[in-house]
Design a protein around this nucleic acid. Structure first.
Lengths: 147, 147
DNA sequence: CCTTGATGCTCTAGTCACTAGAGATATTAG
DNA sequence: CTAATATCTCTAGTGACTAGAGCATCAAGG
């Protein structure tokens, strides 16, 4: 039986995150020690590793929930898992495309910055003036929380 | 003088978002009509367009705040704006690199999926087993809100 | 046996950049 | 004047956690 801390270290997940996963039902409610501390078995470790791995690949928790319920039914067809992964791939590709456009625009902006005063700054000017911009501009871009 | 709705339509920003920007101090407190409705002038429109444009390029609101206070002082050096834009570019490039790694991993996973039952599903298996994975796996990836 | 320090518990609130909805008031077109 | 639309304030919700307060428990050393 593992404590929450050792489970976290083993799976590479922070302790509050494990509690959070339990709270939202991604992990089953853990057993408790006599002193009310959580105890985990190896199944929990596998499950948590699965979650972390999928998170690392960018799957949102809802998709992970679906994948987990699939993996609990080994006789079923693999098609649903394939569909989820394919959707995730499409999502990732769309985000890459969007970011590449942003990158080009930022580079263009920076290349034009001659380093004078703000009055003549291309960076500021381009941001203020849509006309001097080549980016697509529809809907909101990919703004993640970074690493 | 523009109503909040026409300002929003003109700048391409939703009405609650404008109120939110005012609330957090990105836009100054708007004048009010006799009936307490917000009235905006063309300066506000420019400012809002600037914000939206920078958001579209992925700048976080804090960076935009800095850029705005720079653009209010046209005699100052352009260096700070350049620095902010450069940081944003680096951020975008890092995110692209990360996403490309995810894309490769997802493609690998999907290519191996023969379409049988969940028991033999490569997608599920790869997610559960770190050893069969080629992705870097350190820190959390780019998981944005999409478009 | 007792203490000490690490670890655990629950709960609340904060992050970012909005979005949604309730219920009341204002403006505008016909 | 009326009806439809727009706007107001306020609260709460999103996703996926993170931070911190204030207390309880546990393992190891003396």
């Amino acid at each position: 039986m593992l404590s929450i801390g050792s489970l976290g270290r083993t799976a590479g997940v922070k302790v509050p995150t494990i509690r959070y996963y339990e709270e939202i039902g991604l992990l089953p409610e853990a057993e408790r020690s006599a002193g009310n501390q959580r105890l985990f078995n190896l199944r929990s470790l596998h499950r948590l590793r699965f979650i972390r791995h999928a998170r690392d690949l960018g799957f949102p928790l809802d998709a992970i929930r679906d994948l987990l319920s699939l993996s609990d039914q080994p006789e079923q067809s693999c098609a649903a898992a394939d569909t989820i992964a394919r959707a995730q791939l499409a999502e990732v590709e769309a985000r890459i495309a969007r970011l590449n456009a942003l990158k080009a625009e930022l580079e263009r902006m920076l290349a034009q910055c001659a380093g004078g005063t703000v009055r003549d700054c291309r960076v500021i000017e381009v941001l203020g003036d849509h006309a001097s911009c080549a980016a697509p501009h529809h809907g909101h871009p990919d703004i993640g929380k970074g690493t």
